[in-house]
Amino acid sequence: MAQEKKLSILLVDDEELFRQGLRILLSFYNTGGALAVEIVGEANSVEQALKLTIQKNPDLILLDLELGVSDGIAAMISLKEIAYSGKILVLSAHQEDDWIFQAMQKGAAGYVFKNQVASQLCEAIKTVIRSEIYLPSDVASGFFRRFQAYADSSLKVCHQLHLTEREQEVLHWLTQGASNEEIAKNLYVTAATVKSHLTSIFEKLKVTSRTQAIIVALKLGLVQA
């Protein structure tokens, strides 16, 4: 019978004691049969995390949001830039709504408060490896509060600028770097219609180029980065 392939994990946290605790916990999962895992590296900074990710290509990264002079949000942005295809599970002491929202927005597959790691980590790992999102109730509440606040703010600005629903859709695809033809294909309209919408959007945002429109849209919160 073939031996079960172990899940490769990279630990990213600037506190040695916390990483030590994770090592013990993951070892317990191994010996107890709850999870077959292997720690392939440890990092205490964004730079180390990126280097080890490129070298080891772990299935899962357990990521803290406080990494000295940098932070986990920056790490996730950098991981996306190097096309990391594994999962990211955030383990953080931050329980503020904005931190939770930013982490999930930037690509985290789950979020666990550090004081809940002992009781939730095993289930969290199993969940994200199934390509599902892990948000325990206390975390989910914070995420949806921030999401609702963002949605309400965005909707208010759209109303103030008189952006139509279709113009908001065009603006979304514009910020994704799509050409007029690609936007037309995604929205099932003609390129000429997209051009007309862009003209209207430029007028309402008081800009003269696609780049300026994207910058203003991001600054006003009309779209997510």
Rank of each mutant, 00 (worst) to 15 (best):
I133Y: 10
Q55N: 12
L174M: 02
Q212I: 10
S196P: 02
R130V: 11
G221S: 01
S78V: 09
E4G: 09
C122H: 12
F28N: 14
S154N: 14
G33A: 07
E203H: 12
S92D: 05
E123Y: 12
D14C: 06
L60R: 10
R146W: 10
E16I: 15
L155N: 15
Q48P: 08
V12A: 09
V139R: 02
L222Y: 09
I9H: 09
G177E: 06
L11A: 01
L205S: 05
I54R: 15
Q95V: 14
R19W: 07
S209A: 04
Q20P: 03
A103Y: 02
A225S: 09
Y111D: 00
G177Y: 06
I183Q: 03
A178I: 04
Y188E: 06
I82H: 10
N186M: 11
E181P: 03
I129F: 11
L60M: 07
S131L: 11
E81A: 07
E165Y: 04
L91E: 08
V223T: 04
A225T: 07
A43D: 01
Y150E: 15
E123V: 10
T127A: 12
V170Q: 07
F144V: 08
A109F: 10
C122Y: 08
Q116W: 09
T190K: 07
L121M: 13
Q95Y: 13
I24Y: 13
Q116N: 11
Q176D: 03
A140H: 05
F113Q: 07
A151L: 13
A191M: 01
A43Y: 03
K195D: 08
A43W: 06
T53H: 05
W173D: 02
